[in-house]
Amino acid sequence: MEAIILQILNGLDKGSAYALIALGLTLIFGTLGVVNFAHGALFMLGAFVAVTMQRVLTLGFVPEGATGTSAGGFSFGTARETPYVEHWFGPEVGGTIIDWAVPISILVAIPVMALIGVAMERGLIRFFYKRPHADQILVTFGLAIVLQEIIKHYYGANPIPTPAPDVFVGSFDFGQVLGFDPYTIMYPYWRLVYFGFAAVVIGGVFAFLQFTTFGMVVRAGMADRETVGLLGIDIDKRFVVMFALAAIVAGMAGVMYTPILSPNYHMGMDFLVLSFVVVVVGGMGSLPGAVAAGFLLGILQSFASMTEVIELIPGINQVVIYLVAIIVLLTRPRGLMGRKGVMEE
């Protein structure tokens, strides 16, 4: 029983990341009709906003009289630096600010990712609105590789540890709450925070689309772009905003994921393929479909990784997502919640 609860928790967690990325993908696809293979790169860029923020906060100076960095009897270059924030606010407050680098990065990631999103849309993607999907896939895939290589050039290829604030280090004992023995169902605090965060972001995006005039226009545009245009509404302007919004969602998902997975330059690609499967299973252009499929596939993937399941069907952990995709597409060709007419013209 505890094994099942644990795998559901794992699945919810993994599903949160899938759902957040797939949500952005679907938003862009539904509004702009663009298949954006660079969306995973936006997730990765978000993670590197956190890495950059961590570096900016630990930027420092070499105190007077400090000797060079030495270890094991050798000297390697410059001396240990004192971070400016510790110098300005004192070691305690400064230390706390550095410790909270990841949550602080969320605030920075919003404008940065919006800017990147707008630049990407205005600078490149808008020229591909009327081109075939194959062209869009090629150009966005190329863009993803370029972004990856830029990040690798500046940050290297190794994962960079980006820890959560100290208060979130450690695990919550679910077992005791649910009446099991202590230490049977332990779950890291940060992963619970991530799940909560994903729920808030997803809820926020839905509320924005549902309850604002802007959202109503966008939804109308998703349903029938031509008619909305005929009504004299400049739908393109709104779509730029939607692209920026999708970039922000992906970026924030990336920032918050850094304590779970030390970021490296190809983490976006790792998530992208799975997120596309999520979108297809959920139904192209369906936002609730993307979210539901994200959680569903996350949970299925976790269960497929259980030893008992692997013993029964070897290799299932590697293929379960694609297997489900095949079954869903065979039985419901438009995905779980797909609408008629999307990508079918």
């Binding site: 505890e2 094994a3 794992n10 992963r191 779970i260 993937q301 259980m306 030893t307």
Partner: peptide
């Protein structure tokens, strides 16, 4: 799998 990224599904059964 090589490059699994998130090992949570493999790690959670260890404790029990």
């Amino acid at each position: 799998p090589v490059g699994a990224g998130d090992f949570s599904a493999y790690l959670t059964p260890v404790a029990n």
